[in-house]
Amino acid sequence: MSNTVFCRKYQKELPALPFPPLPGKQGQEIQASVSKQAWGEWQALQTRLINEKHLNMLNPEDRTYLMEQMQRFMDNEETDQAEGYVPPTQA
């Protein structure tokens, strides 16, 4: 039987993450309220932001920026986008 979670991004029951994606309380909260689908979409956006904005994950300000963007993404608020990114077209 697959675990589900009421996803805060999509506001419906969806498959859950198999384990917390971050350490500590924050990871547990994400696992309890974010679906596997939403987390995968966030990871894609996170990767684009890191690459396009040349973020350094050793820099505390860059990590804080990413966490703020993650919260905005999960709450369906406007997030920064990678400049010039064009989503792939589905054929």
Rank of each mutant, 00 (worst) to 15 (best):
S2W: 04
Y10G: 11
E29C: 11
M57H: 13
R72Y: 07
P15Y: 12
M1E: 14
P21C: 14
W42C: 12
T64Q: 13
V5P: 05
L66A: 11
R48A: 13
N51S: 15
L49Y: 02
P87S: 00
I30P: 02
R8F: 05
P18C: 06
L45A: 10
Q69M: 11
F6Q: 12
M1D: 09
Y10P: 09
F6I: 13
D62G: 05
L58F: 06
A38Q: 05
L22I: 03
R8W: 10
C7E: 04
N51M: 14
K36A: 01
Q37M: 04
S33A: 08
L66S: 13
N51P: 06
F73D: 10
K12C: 01
S33P: 01
G84H: 11
L22D: 10
L66E: 12
W42K: 09
E61C: 09
L45H: 14
Q71T: 08
Y10I: 03
K53I: 00
Q43T: 13
P20C: 15
T89F: 03
S35L: 09
I50N: 15
Y85G: 00
E78G: 08
Q11T: 03
Y85K: 00
S33Y: 02
G84L: 05
Y10A: 10
T64R: 10
Y65F: 03
L55I: 00
E29T: 14
Q90L: 08
L17Y: 11
D75S: 06
A91N: 09
T47I: 01
L58C: 03
T89G: 12
E77V: 10
Q28L: 15
R72L: 12
D75G: 01
N3A: 11
Q81R: 13
L66Q: 14
